[in-house]
Measured scan of single mutants.
Amino acid sequence: MAAGGDHGSPDSYRSPLASRYASPEMCFVFSDRYKFRTWRQLWLWLAEAEQTLGLPITDEQIQEMKSNLENIDFKMAAEEEKRLRHDVMAHVHTFGHCCPKAAGIIHLGATSCYVGDNTDLIILRNALDLLLPKLARVISRLADFAKERASLPTLGFTHFQPAQLTTVGKRCCLWIQDLCMDLQNLKRVRDDLRFRGVKGTTGTQASFLQLFEGDDHKVEQLDKMVTEKAGFKRAFIITGQTYTRKVDIEVLSVLASLGASVHKICTDIRLLANLKEMEEPFEKQQIGSSAMPYKRNPMRSERCCSLARHLMTLVMDPLQTASVQWFERTLDDSANRRICLAEAFLTADTILNTLQNISEGLVVYPKVIERRIRQELPFMATENIIMAMVKAGGSRQDCHEKIRVLSQQAASVVKQEGGDNDLIERIQVDAYFSPIHSQLDHLLDPSSFTGRASQQVQRFLEEEVYPLLKPYESVMKVKAELCL
């Protein structure tokens, strides 16, 4: 049975990233139509530049190519590739079939990587351009969430054990800070992308030097003109047959890092959902379990974690691919890159769409948070109580021993009897502590235990987050809708 299948058929496997999760716009960027249309555009740009620099290419040939950029006979191309065992030459023939007058000058002087690699770089750039505003929107939604809850005390956790208090907004800023680093890295790697350009079979530009009869300047002009037509500021000066596969490492490393950030955020949300302090959106008709109707599973956060793990592992592909590119190139890269580049971007696209949807509907339960604080705060307040007693004339050592005994009794009630923490009640009825009984409410005010959390939130948002989001103001209103 021949390899390949009808990918629109229910009898043929289709990647869930495309069929179930990723956005239509990201799927289109990695589609065959987008790819092969870009090949034709690159052939047109090459012909236009070659004509401008004096090669015998007519206006009629150029116009014929322009008129057929979208006229792609995919069936013919597939048949040609089956016959020739070469995808680029299959599309040269297919393009030439609908451009008979231009057929002889299509791909003039070029090698397969002229269309293959340059198209990949265009796709990487455009895919990054799709991700950047999506990530900015996630940051914006979380920034709104953090600002609104900047002063809401909550129990902090280290080692997932109760620690000092923080605020809900401050905790959210930990998430935002990681995503801001990801946004900066995505922008950097996007701006650092260079075009492969017009380089020939081993990167020496020998074929173009021959076409222009040894004119170095025209060869350099050709490279520059096509690079500018493709919208790049610069091209690699040095290439082998391909652009260095280190570029793929750079791009997928940034995406993998984004995956790590999203995994951490969504894990926190899942843990908070278990504590009943916070939940992701839950639709009115949504079913959490087929057997347990009360369940409210954090399905979206779980999906993000599941896909983020996949995204983090994909960076190993370009690392290994770059390491086995012998001399000017081997074909070890080809099949692998067809999979890992598309999957990385479709996965990143999915987790950003999902995280935006989550961040637009996060639900906080202040009463649950308050109750958990009441359970733990008495123990945390013991040092403040000791200091207040010393100020009232008591002995630190005597007070410490009193607190120690009462704390152990209260802990026994919590752990052995399943009761509430009654340390404060014990202190309130103990005559030894009568000098500070009137101060206990103040000493137990949760806001006095959150330090500068709310001020940190305000400063972080104003100095770091809002300036970073400013270039994306025009796209901030787009909502994230999930079908599944």
Rank of each mutant, 00 (worst) to 15 (best):
W326K: 02
F379A: 02
I106A: 07
G197Q: 01
L179G: 05
P446Y: 04
F95T: 08
V364M: 07
T321L: 10
R37I: 15
V429I: 11
A78Q: 15
A308W: 03
G203K: 02
K101M: 12
L46R: 01
L440G: 06
Q455V: 09
P24V: 11
G8W: 15
E481G: 15
E328T: 00
Q456C: 08
P56N: 10
V262E: 03
Q63R: 09
D87K: 00
H97M: 12
F36S: 13
G393P: 04
K477T: 15
P378Y: 03
F212R: 03
P16R: 12
C173R: 02
W45G: 14
L44W: 06
K367I: 04
R245F: 00
C172M: 06
L211C: 10
L53K: 00
P366T: 10
V226F: 00
L165D: 01
L42D: 00
L186E: 04
V414L: 06
A78H: 07
F460E: 04
G240R: 00
L209V: 12
P56W: 07
L341F: 14
V363I: 14
I57C: 06
P467G: 08
M89T: 02
L484H: 15
E80P: 03
D191K: 07
V189D: 06
R137Q: 14
P446K: 04
P471Y: 15
L311I: 12
Q161T: 02
A230G: 07
I139K: 03
Q51H: 07
K479C: 14
A411D: 03
V324Q: 06
W43C: 00
D144G: 14
V390S: 09
R125I: 05
Y114A: 03
D332I: 00
E81S: 04
K470C: 14
V413T: 13
N185W: 11
E70F: 14
P133H: 13
S151E: 08
L131R: 00
D32K: 10
S23G: 11
K82I: 13
G156V: 01
E220A: 11
T227I: 04
A2C: 15
E81N: 00
V478H: 07
L108W: 14
V247R: 05
S447T: 12
L272V: 10
N357G: 13
E343A: 07
C304Y: 01
L121S: 08
L331N: 05
M181G: 08
P281G: 08
M225P: 02
Q409F: 06
D333N: 01
D332E: 00
P24Y: 14
L258H: 11
L165R: 03
R141Q: 14
I287D: 02
K224L: 12
G116R: 02
K479R: 12
E401L: 08
F95S: 05
T354I: 15
N71S: 09
P24M: 11
A18Y: 13
R171D: 00
T52K: 11
S23F: 07
T167K: 02
L135I: 14
V475G: 14
T154D: 07
M278E: 02
L222H: 00
G214R: 12
P16S: 15
L211F: 07
V315G: 07
S395I: 02
T242M: 07
T158L: 03
A78L: 07
M380F: 09
T166A: 06
P162E: 05
T58C: 09
S474P: 14
K470L: 14
H97R: 09
I369N: 11
V363N: 06
S207E: 04
Q205W: 00
S31M: 03
M316C: 08
T158F: 01
V247F: 09
T154E: 06
R234Y: 13
A90K: 02
Y432P: 05
D333I: 00
E464H: 05
D11C: 15
D178N: 12
E302Q: 02
A77L: 13
F232K: 01
L468D: 06
P100N: 08
T347S: 12
G169R: 01
S447Q: 15
P293F: 02
A110Y: 00
L255G: 04
D420R: 03
V429K: 08
M76L: 09
E302P: 02
E220N: 12
E370G: 08
E277R: 02
Q320N: 13
T167F: 01
P16A: 08
T321R: 02
Q456F: 04
V475A: 15
